[in-house]
Amino acid sequence: MTAVAEAASTQAKPRERWTDNKWVQRAIVWGALLALYELLAIILGDFYLASLEDIVSGFGQIVEEGRIPTVLTSLEHLLVGFALAAAVGIPIGVAMGRSFVVDQVIGMYVRGLFVTSLAALLPLLIILFGVGFRFQVAVVFLFSVFFVIVNTAAGARAVPRQLMRTAEAFCVSPTRRFTAVVLPSSLPYIVIGLRLAVANAYTGMVLAELWVGVGTGGILKNMGQNRDLPKFFAMVLLITALAAFSSYLIRVLEKRLMPWAKEVRAA
């Protein structure tokens, strides 16, 4: 029970009922939602909604039609763009967090692009990079790099001053100070940055592909235009699962690599 609910209720603890079990509740509500959806799908017809059975068989059709290799190619672009964003973003973030001059010189551009609408850059990127591999990677890169930089910088800035002092007092060399103090204590922030970045990288990937009508986005566009909704929804669910899984993977890696890390808030 949350503190608020507790304060609102009286002291006496009510007897537990079977409807208090969260899985019972989920079964009821989710079941009802699915039934409602199915009903709507039947009433509105194929053109508006795909029924649940159709969506399930949509998965099979996606595989049969050989869409999976296309998805994998998209993921490859995603991975390249994301890796570039991490490789570029982390050093820049650390530099921004540790150096006043760097922060002043590039901080305003980074923070500006971090909060604004990067989609507006797409028409320019097309002129610069064409519509192929380089364009896709560039969009993914842009959509993820600022999350990495901003969070890394926040982490590097948050290195406890005492730790730095202690290291200085023990005459630890600047390079060692960096690897032994700055990096480990900003790691949790870097990981949060990477997690947000990967989620946004998927948005970038889909956006770039929708724009030029290739890859997974291209498939979605076609399916949407043909009102091939069972396959469309199956595809959406697949990509969503992949996005959620990527973020989960980073979380698992974090737990593995640095079990000491505390929860931190994203910048």
């Binding site: 509740q25 989710w30 929708l210 949407g224 235009q225 469309f232 595809m235």
Partner: peptide
């Protein structure tokens, strides 16, 4: 009932729905 749905929806790149 809603918390897991919200988490799942949050993971979705909503741009996909544009078509």
């Amino acid at each position: 009932t809603l918390d897991p749905l919200i988490d799942a929806a949050y993971a979705m790149p909503v741009t996909m729905l544009i078509p």
